[in-house]
Amino acid sequence: MISGARSAVAGVLLTGISSGVFPADDWNLKTLMSEMAQVPASRTRFVETRHIALLTRPLELKGSLSYERPNRLSKHVQSPFDELLTVDGDTLTLANTKKVTTLSLREQPGVGALVESVRATLAGDLAQLERHYRVQFSGHRAAWRLQLVPRDAQVKGAVDSIVLAGAAARLKRIEIAETGGDRSVMTILHDGK
């Protein structure tokens, strides 16, 4: 993780050179990540639309997301059913009205990749993000976009790409394209501001 002005400057220079981003634009992947890394915790609401090839109309899910540094993330679906997905370190806990299941993240490549894409982004952990994905950054501070393409063959079998979009240190939208043609779009609502 980047900390301190010197390494931040070095990071700016390095990414500026390597990704060929216009030098005048001082907002890029590194700065996005270091801004993200300043956020200790967040709590948001979301609306997720799932387009499932099997169905003639999409499913709409509503609930809340919360993140706590360094690696605790939870997604609470409240409608149309109740399901709480919590990831803490490597342990994933899935609780619905019927039962609670605990498993290791790496057991479920699809879920694992999905979690890591959001969690590493919220953590501002570029190294972790790049371990799982080829990352492409575009946009500017007020409207940035990260396109993630999985590296692992097994994850590739489940997920085509994940697109994260936001403004400054706020994640506003997650789009997941699955290999089977299914797709989900999650819109994240930041209360107050």
Partner: peptide
């Protein structure tokens, strides 16, 4: 199955349901 498709288990279900 319809109720379950949106859940986390749903992603596995989608593959075998047909």
């Amino acid at each position: 199955a319809l109720a379950e498709l949106g859940t986390q288990a749903g992603s596995a279900l989608r593959k075998v349901l047909p």
